[in-house]
Design a protein around this nucleic acid. Structure first.
Lengths: 231, 231
DNA sequence: GCACCGACTTGAGATAGATCAAATATCTTT
DNA sequence: AAAGATATTTGATCTATCTCAAGTCGGTGC
């Protein structure tokens, strides 16, 4: 891929917006593109970090597995999203592994470029801080969900979060949610067994709140669903 | 408290070490001291953030509660530790509330001072990033523990993490752990009911791995405990 | 179009940990 | 030091969710 194109991709990221073209070029120079196919590991738990990643297209998961081999998906990363920033700022190996769940293209941005960027540009630095903060915020949300909500509530929470932003209408029926990965993976993300996930989806369908066709979920009764999810 | 003393306290924090005295003074100028007694709320979930806090002495908890009133402690903060940084970098209200679990003294550092600091000093910025990263890392650890480990394993993990650093000896028996809060609070922190926590401590005592006297736990057989916690 | 393979569903049963309740123990306040 | 209040322990029971097992569905390659 030409460095022109890399430049263009970087320029669309919130992180680099507002950066001057020459700064972006500097970053682009320290960027490595890679293509991975479904199932490939990008890094293992315990590997040292040399930078962070941007997903150009495809989908991957961050996860760890127990000694018994049970896998727990912590995070799903799709196009335009970044991962691996946090580890870069500590002298620590990756606490999770990253695996492609679809053929994907990635950009790797070298740690050195980021550290230079911080040195030069306080705005960049603040964006980096904002990015980390928002990841932290969503992890707190996960902790809250795992500890205070039932499986059904977590599923409903997930569906509501992933409605494809039809706007502010309160009870717009027919909202469409596309599951970005296999149901087994989503279940793991929600810390539920696949069987339980399947049953919950079934039950929500049966009571007319949603309808499910493969990876497409349609929210039929938003209010009822919200109510169910609330308390 | 005199601003001299504030200056001295700030200077001991890793975050401000390496900063010049005049810079620290600038920070100190934007610092507000507060004393809270046991049970007092420092901020509520939903409150807007105007800076972050340093604990001078005392102990507090960050937590949220479910609609049914069940409380879940996310984080315990003791002397020398900071909290509330992450929220400061986003336009979001606090996702948790903070409550003193012992009479405490706090320093509040205004957001504006932090943002100025970032503007001026890339080292400070990097430390801020490192701080957030490390918090994020430990949250990932929590998520891992909640999703892959049993209650007993979490308790053991907690005890092993909180041994008061007797060094690298592998099987130094008699390591002493002091629970920094009531057992009910620790249990919540570990996402366990108080009853279950009590029983686990009892069982570990019964099998001779630890001994418990109030808030003092002594690890008697480190190896056995580790083994138990592993798998 | 058919056979195969992984993903999903459905049923039955098992269980870790929660909840409820009552008895102690510990800390606070007077 | 006694009375209350709060925290902890212990026992008995309950239940949400997991696990195991057996289909069924849906896409892919031949």
């Amino acid at each position: 891929m030409s460095s022109i194109k890399v430049h263009a991709i970087l320029a669309t990221l919130p992180l680099f917006k507002e950066m001057g073209p020459e700064e972006i070029d500097r970053i682009a120079q320290n960027t490595r593109e890679s293509h991975v196919s479904r199932g490939e590991i990008i890094f293992q738990r315990g590997d040292p970090s040399h930078g962070f990643y941007v997903v150009i297209h495809g989908q991957l998961k961050l996860a760890f597995s127990s000694p018994q081999g049970v896998e727990k998906v912590v995070h799903l990363v799709g196009p335009g999203k970044t991962f691996g920033e946090a580890v870069m700022f500590m002298d620590m190996p990756y606490p999770v592994y990253a695996q492609a769940i679809a053929d994907s293209a990635l950009l790797h941005i070298a740690r050195s470029a980021v550290f230079e960027g911080i040195e030069r540009d306080p705005v960049f630095c603040r964006k980096m801080l904002a990015g980390l903060s928002s990841r932290l915020h969503s992890l707190i949300g996960d902790v809250e969900a795992y500890s205070l909500r039932s499986c059904t509530q977590r599923v409903i929470g997930y569906l509501l979060q992933h409605d494809c932003g039809c706007g502010a209408t309160d009870n717009c029926a027919g909202i469409h949610v596309n599951l970005p990965a296999s149901k087994t993976v989503i279940a793991s993300r929600l810390n539920i067994s696949p069987e339980t996930f399947s049953r919950i989806l079934h039950d929500l369908s049966a009571s007319g709140m949603i309808s499910v066709k493969g990876k497409d979920v349609t929210i039929l009764d938003m209010n009822k669903l919200r109510e169910y999810g609330q308390q």
